[in-house]
């Protein structure tokens, strides 16, 4: 029955106009980023390394390639995409409550737990499709428009260059991780959705929570950094970047300082982030199921 229910939920999602808002919005945003980088990408890249221009030749042209554009796109959009996820997931229960269809669903021989799980799985599949869409536009289209070369990543304290042949597998894992991260948002939005009878409330609440967490994360004060920040899901949602942080050979020795191809600097940190994100999903879904099972459907 679960798969029938899941198919029904996917069918409903596919039939709703708002589903395609996210795809349209992503296309527009990615296109704008591509346009901006096509026009002024050189300057932008130069800005990241302006302090180094005296010491090094900055290969701006090579740095501005499809892989870089995709990283830039993910860096910019994965912070904002939760809104698009909340738009669908936050509506899952409350939208049906608002429309009145929820009372028809509950009156059918299906357990409420299954309803939540089916709706959650449908949201996750939606996320996968959204990220797939992002990969097509952000990665493959960028590669066509900008060409491919080594990937340059500017971090706070260092820059990383990954060989072109050492990138695709990292993107694959990064997109998988992003799915996990956004699945937390879906669980969060569904949780709020259970408590509400209109769709705006949970969408706004879930988005607000994400914004507040992101702000706390950006406030680099010890009060938060040592207490809350390490446990925020938004902190761990950045884990996708961990796949782009390679190991380097020790600073002394034959290949000292060079990036080790195919390596990840600290995979255990990514495992830990994944575990924390899974924990959040279980927590949010647990609360959602608990509340939904005892909820009186009055709409």
């Amino acid at each position: 029955m679960f798969f029938t229910l899941l198919k029904i939920e996917l069918f409903k999602i596919s039939k709703r106009p708002r589903t395609y808002i996210a795809f349209g919005a992503l296309a527009v945003l990615i296109f704008l980023i591509q346009l901006a980088l096509k026009a002024n990408g050189d300057e932008f890249v130069g800005l990241l390394l302006s302090a180094q221009e005296d010491t090094f030749e900055i290969p701006r042209k090579e740095m501005l390639n499809g892989y870089f554009v995709c990283f830039f796109v993910l860096n910019m959009l994965l912070i904002h995409i939760p809104l698009l996820v909340a738009l669908i997931a936050g509506d899952q229960i409350s939208g049906e409550a608002g429309m009145g269809t929820l009372r028809f669903m509950i009156g059918k021989p299906i357990s409420r737990t299954q309803i939540i799980l089916a709706k959650y799985c449908a949201s996750v599949i939606y996320i996968v499709l959204m990220l797939f869409w992002m990969a097509i536009l952000g990665l493959f289209l960028s590669n066509i428009l900008f060409g491919t070369s080594d990937l340059f990543i500017g971090r706070q304290f260092d820059v990383i260059v990954l060989e072109a042949s050492d990138i695709m597998w990292r993107y694959l894992l990064a997109f998988l991780f992003a799915t996990l991260g956004l699945s937390v948002i879906a669980a969060l939005a569904i949780m709020f959705s259970v408590f509400s009878d209109n769709s705006i409330g949970p969408i706004v609440t879930a988005t607000t929570v994400v914004i507040v967490c992101t702000i706390i994360q950006q406030l680099t004060v010890p009060l938060f950094e040592n207490t809350i920040t390490p446990w925020l899901f938004t902190t761990h949602m950045l884990g996708w970047k961990g796949f782009f942080y390679p190991e380097t050979y020790q600073m002394v020795g034959e290949n000292s300082g060079a990036v080790i191809k195919g390596s990840i600097e600290n995979i255990s940190a990514i495992y830990k982030s994944s575990a924390i994100l899974f924990g959040y999903i279980l927590l949010f879904l647990g609360i959602a199921i608990w509340q939904f099972r005892k909820k009186d459907i009055l709409t």
Binding site: K12, K15, P17, M99, G100, T101, R103, F104, G107
Partner: peptide, 11 residues
Amino acid sequence: AVIERPDLYKY
């Protein structure tokens, strides 16, 4: 059952 208004999926 049809409970109160027949609110089905409008889309």
